[in-house]
């Protein structure tokens, strides 16, 4: 089974702060890593390859330094790596990114499965998987937490994590799956493979906009449908507020404060309201 895995380079921490004066992201001293969910997707792909044969291609889009996660993917067992890197790709929203990745996957042409992490820790959108699937016209299974080997009838069994349970889905191939951490325990890259991935003749390709046949206005900021118009630091800072009053009042005030901070206690939103409207 030939598998394309989509991987993204992200900051090594979500502890990104904004300069309170300029509103700029302060990036000093923060390294970059392969997005954690993507690592699980890659591990799943390598295990499928080890069980059934085939080839794993790691595909990423990003600046030149993102080649490091492509190399790391080879270290973990990918056979080939492709980095889509071009200033024309910069500033892309998920629409333009899924177009770019979709075009690259079409160019790769030979694949049975596309895997990616559920979401990236910098953007948290979880949109790329489904949007790539739609671009390619393939079925999708999101939140995949287990995959069985492909069957002879050209389908694959996927365990899909839901809220409060799971579903078993039989999906025809080729398909796009987005993977969550529960899927597997990832391996550490093999030292020898990492060294190979850095060699001049490493199986790593860099593709630009022309290589994937992307026209101006299709990719990057110019090809995006959404635009960031402002970034700012969330309000807050830790200033202790002592809640006063009798126990009932204190707790009531507390719950209001939590609501103000958009801090939903997970159990408290699981309730469903039906025809009778229950109390809400």
């Amino acid at each position: 089974m030939d598998i394309v895995v989509l991987i993204k380079q992200v900051p090594d921490s979500t502890e990104v702060k904004l300069d309170p004066k300029t509103g700029h992201l302060l990036r000093e001293g923060i390294g970059s890593i392969m997005n954690p969910d993507d690592r699980h997707a890659l591990e799943a792909a390598v295990r499928l390859k080890e069980a059934q044969g085939g080839k794993v291609v790691a595909l990423s889009m990003g600046p030149a330094q993102a080649v490091d996660i492509v190399s790391e993917a080879i270290g973990m067992g990918a056979d080939e790596g492709i980095l889509l890197s071009d200033s024309a790709f910069a500033g892309a929203d998920t629409w333009a990114t899924s177009s770019t990745l979709g075009k690259a996957i079409e160019k790769i042409a030979k694949y049975d499965l596309v895997l990616c992490g559920r979401q990236a820790i910098d953007g948290d959108t979880a949109q790329i998987g489904p949007q790539v699937a739609e671009y390619l016209g393939l079925p999708q299974v999101t939140y995949a937490c287990d995959i069985e080997a492909a069957r002879d009838d050209g389908t694959i069994m996927v365990k899909k994590r839901g809220e409060g349970g799971y579903e078993m889905v039989q999906c025809p191939l080729p398909a796009v799956l987005t993977v969550i951490a529960e899927m597997n325990r990832t391996r550490y890259p093999a030292i020898g493979r990492l060294i190979d991935a850095c060699a001049e003749r490493a199986p790593v390709q860099i593709w630009n906009a022309a290589d994937i046949g992307a026209k101006t206005g299709e990719v990057g900021l110019a090809g995006s449908l959404t635009h960031v118009i402002r970034t700012f630091a969330p309000k807050g800072g830790r200033r202790t507020e002592m809640l006063e009053g009798d126990t009932g009042t204190v707790v009531r005030t507390l719950l209001e404060k939590l609501q103000e901070k958009h801090l939903v206690l997970p159990g408290a939103q699981a309730g469903a309201v039906g025809q009778e409207g229950k109390k809400s």
């Binding site: 900051p11 502890e15 990104v16 948290d124 635009h227 118009i229 402002r230 970034t231 700012f232």
Partner: peptide, 13 residues
């Protein structure tokens, strides 16, 4: 929110 809630972004379509 982005970056795990450390940054807020306003986006238009």
């Amino acid at each position: 929110p982005a970056f795990g809630g450390n940054v807020m972004a306003t986006i238009v379509s």
